[in-house]
Simulated scan of single mutants.
Amino acid sequence: MTQTQYTLEGLPVPAIIATLSYEEIRLNTINKLVAIDPTYSGLLESDPAIKVIEAASYDDLVLRQRVNDAARANLLFFARGADLDHLAAFYDVLRLVGETDSALQTRTILAIQGRSTGGTEEQYKYVARTADVRVKDVAVYQVNGGPKLRVALLSAVNGGVPDAPMLAAVTAAVTAPGVRAINDVIEVVSATQAPQNIVLDVWLLPNAPLAIIDSMETLIRSAWFDESGIGFDLNPSWITARVHLPGVSRVVVLSPAGPVVENDNHAATLGTITVNFAGRSR
Rank of each mutant, 00 (worst) to 15 (best):
M1D: 12
S215R: 08
D201S: 13
V157G: 01
A156M: 04
T108P: 10
W224T: 03
E217Y: 01
I112P: 00
V93S: 05
E54T: 06
R180G: 10
G118D: 12
V188C: 08
T117R: 11
Y141D: 09
R64L: 14
S249R: 13
V243T: 06
L61R: 07
Q142D: 12
G258K: 14
G247P: 08
A181E: 15
L76W: 09
S249N: 13
A211G: 11
A172I: 01
D83S: 13
F78K: 02
E23L: 02
V189A: 09
R250E: 14
Q123C: 13
R250V: 01
F277M: 02
V161E: 13
F277W: 03
N263Y: 03
L154Q: 00
N263A: 00
V261I: 15
R180L: 12
L149M: 12
L94V: 14
L254T: 14
I112N: 02
E122F: 14
A194F: 06
I16L: 09
W203N: 06
V135R: 06
P256E: 03
A89W: 00
D47R: 13
N158V: 03
K32Q: 10
G229S: 11
M1Y: 07
A172S: 14
T29W: 04
V179R: 12
D101E: 11
P14E: 02
I17K: 02
D163A: 04
D69H: 07
